[in-house]
């Protein structure tokens, strides 16, 4: 054995196992965020089981005050607000997840392709993205919706495309950084194919930064859909997501009712939860682990 292998602390200790996410223990705010996300997902999935009433049923007078049977009161048509919130979670969260997922698939595939192939493919894709991002996303969404109308497929396509451009930029940058590292170079020199290099060498190392981005994109999508619905340009009746509920109940605020605050708060809580987790994930990336010499 050699000198170096004999020295006791040359051998780094093995990691101990405990609850970890991306190899780190979540802090307090991250735990709060994780719990909020889990609760929201549970509510969305189990909506029919949890909701006290079906979402479209008229169960009393319009704008009835909260009571023991209707915790948050009734809405403009006499429907139970709590039940509508619970069902609204399905549409809001489901649609946002779908769009974010779609945007990620498009963005990552294009971003990684641009980064690994380079040349004109990269140039063309990057210029298209620059063009799409030359104006605020909300304004761009307005332009498309004004022509194509506000069908759900149009909504999904538009927002997914806009999101994909942002994912593309990050995915491309991350892939470029990783591709310049020597273990990727080593794989190329070994003669590995492009597919192996992307899927085995780059992708596993790109997941942590992209996971935080997924959270951010989800919030962005979720808020954008809600904002469009609130402006009357998103989800159209009879469907209702949280954003359109805020719009439907908005006039009640002047009568000192909290009705529009419930759906708005539901939106706020979920985005806060996701942002808590994202903030923690970003802080582990940026945290320097250099020890003073």
């Amino acid at each position: 054995m050699t000198v170096e292998a004999l020295t006791p602390d040359a051998i780094a200790p093995r990691r101990r196992r405990s609850i970890r996410l991306f190899g780190h223990k979540p802090n307090l705010t991250a735990w709060i965020g994780l719990i909020i996300i889990a609760l929201n997902i549970a509510v969305a999935v189990l909506a029919p089981l949890i909701a006290p009433y079906p979402q479209a049923d008229i169960v009393g007078d319009a704008w009835a005050d909260p009571d023991r049977l209707h915790w948050l009161g009734l809405d403009n048509l006499g429907r139970d607000i709590l039940s509508r919130l619970i069902y609204g979670a399905r549409l809001s969260i489901g649609l946002s997840s779908l769009i974010t997922g779609l945007a990620f698939v498009i963005g990552i595939v294009c971003g990684f392709t641009a980064a690994t192939l380079g040349g004109w493919v990269d140039a063309v894709l990057s210029r298209i993205v620059d063009l799409l991002l030359s104006m605020p996303v909300l304004i761009f969404a307005f332009m498309i919706l004004s022509v194509l109308g506000t069908d759900i497929p149009v909504l999904i396509g538009t927002i997914a495309l806009l999101n994909a451009t942002l994912v593309f930029r990050l995915a491309r940058a991350v892939a470029m950084t990783i591709a310049s590292l020597e273990y990727v170079e080593a794989a190329k020199v070994r003669g590995e194919g492009t597919w192996w290099v992307i899927s085995r060498e780059i992708l596993p190392n790109a997941i942590p930064p992209l996971a935080a981005e997924f959270g951010l994109r989800f919030c962005f999508t979720f808020l954008l859909i809600a904002a469009l619905s609130f402006l009357g340009l998103g989800i159209q009746p009879p469907l209702a997501d949280w954003g359109s509920m805020v719009k439907d109940y908005r006039d009640m605020i002047n009568l000192d009712s909290a009705a529009p605050l419930y759906p708005a708060a539901a939106i706020a809580i979920l985005t806060i939860g996701v942002n808590f987790v994202v903030d923690w994930m970003l802080s582990i990336h940026s945290r320097g682990h250099g020890e003073p010499a």
Binding site: T29, C219, L223, A226, A227, F230, V246, P260, L261, A264, A265, I267, A268, T271, I272, V274, N275, F276, D279
Partner: peptide, 11 residues
């Protein structure tokens, strides 16, 4: 601030 930037403007 993290909470403020997370919530929608209308809230």
């Amino acid at each position: 601030t993290l909470m403020t930037i997370s919530v929608p403007e209308y809230f």
